[in-house]
Design a protein around this nucleic acid. Structure first.
Lengths: 187, 187
DNA sequence: AAAAACGGAATGAAAGTTCATTCTGCAAGC
DNA sequence: GCTTGCAGAATGAACTTTCATTCCGTTTTT
């Protein structure tokens, strides 16, 4: 028998990603996970606890993929390139996870721990870009958070266009877009 | 007495933007609009009809602001510049409308008419950029939809950074960002 | 056989919608 | 001018449905 807890989290991830938190009834999660609705409450205190645990789990999973080269002793250019590529690839291969994470930022039902985790990861990227600004590699007339925001906007929209079918994100196209983004933020 | 229909739409826009469709009860909309909850059903068949009418109304309003110079007989560079500026300014001065539109793209409760309207507008921008590619003004090793996604990502995140306070979008900064985006997509 | 896990009907609260009634403004009659 | 009658707008309590959560009989595990 499969792990029920995992089945519940997977079902919840897909439904929350497609229909949002308020739009997905708990019994529907149970049905999709092939589990009685009462069983969900054996693993999670309530719906809010479920969404929070799911958020933190996926956030960490995504960060460990995207930020794997973050501490490496390599040029900033390579760190950015590999992070960007990892990021887009994570989003493409984990559509539901990425959609879920994107659409749940700063939602009122996320607790302090979830918010802190998210902010911690963002700060790590901002710190990398800030050192790039100090070394005059990156444009420094704008706060590093703004650079993070720019790049995440580009990733986010490209991935959405890919999902909807407007744009096929082949490795070559991903590379081209990454070059464009780099041109936009470099000095 | 103010126009009730308008009061309802304004209240719904603000609440849907802040709390999402499923997260806002109809009676709350009524309260905010200073209207009895039954009154809403005199103007809209149900909650879904309300969100669809609101979506189409705001989409058209925004397009008429952003795309006002789209058919003009002027160089591509000016069309892009003015569209970009109009777009950012619309988002800044109509925060709730912009948030509402952004967060309701491709939601399951939007009907075919709403989806078609949205796609139609998007295609008009893509077509302009495609002619720019044919004339070798813009990078053409990427589909025009990728350029649209790239620019809308930048706008969207810049505006969010402005709202959160990371970045003050003064006319000068907007200009600078527009230049960055242009540099990234031009040949 | 005892204990733990499980399922899904039951429950009460909350949400969407309806509808009998109350307002409101205007035109006809006095 | 003032009253009366009327039509349509507005209302919000009541109704219906939906949802999160609980409860308890059943199944599985140890």
């Amino acid at each position: 028998m499969v792990d029920k807890r995992e089945a519940i989290m997977t079902a919840a991830m897909e439904l929350f990603a497609e229909r949002g938190f308020y739009g997905t009834p708990v019994p529907l999660i149970a049905e999709k996970a092939q589990v009685g609705s009462g069983t969900i409450y054996r693993y999670f205190k309530d719906k809010e606890a479920l969404v929070n645990e799911l958020y933190r789990h996926l956030k960490q999973e995504m960060f460990s993929c995207v930020g794997e080269d973050l501490g490496e002793e390599v040029p900033l250019r390579s760190i950015c390139k590999s992070s960007f590529t990892n990021w887009v690839n994570y989003a493409i291969t984990n559509q539901h996870a990425y959609k879920f994470l994107e659409s749940h930022h700063h939602q009122p039902y996320l607790d302090a721990e979830s918010q802190a985790l998210s902010e911690g990861f963002r700060n790590q990227f901002a710190a990398i870009l800030a050192t790039g600004q100090e070394q005059q590699i990156l444009k420094d007339d704008v706060p590093p958070e703004a650079l993070v925001a720019f790049v995440s906007g580009i990733v986010h929209e490209a991935v959405k266009a890919h999902w909807v079918g407007y744009l096929e994100l082949t490795p070559e196209i991903i590379d081209k877009i990454e070059e464009m983004a780099w041109q936009a933020i470099r000095n």
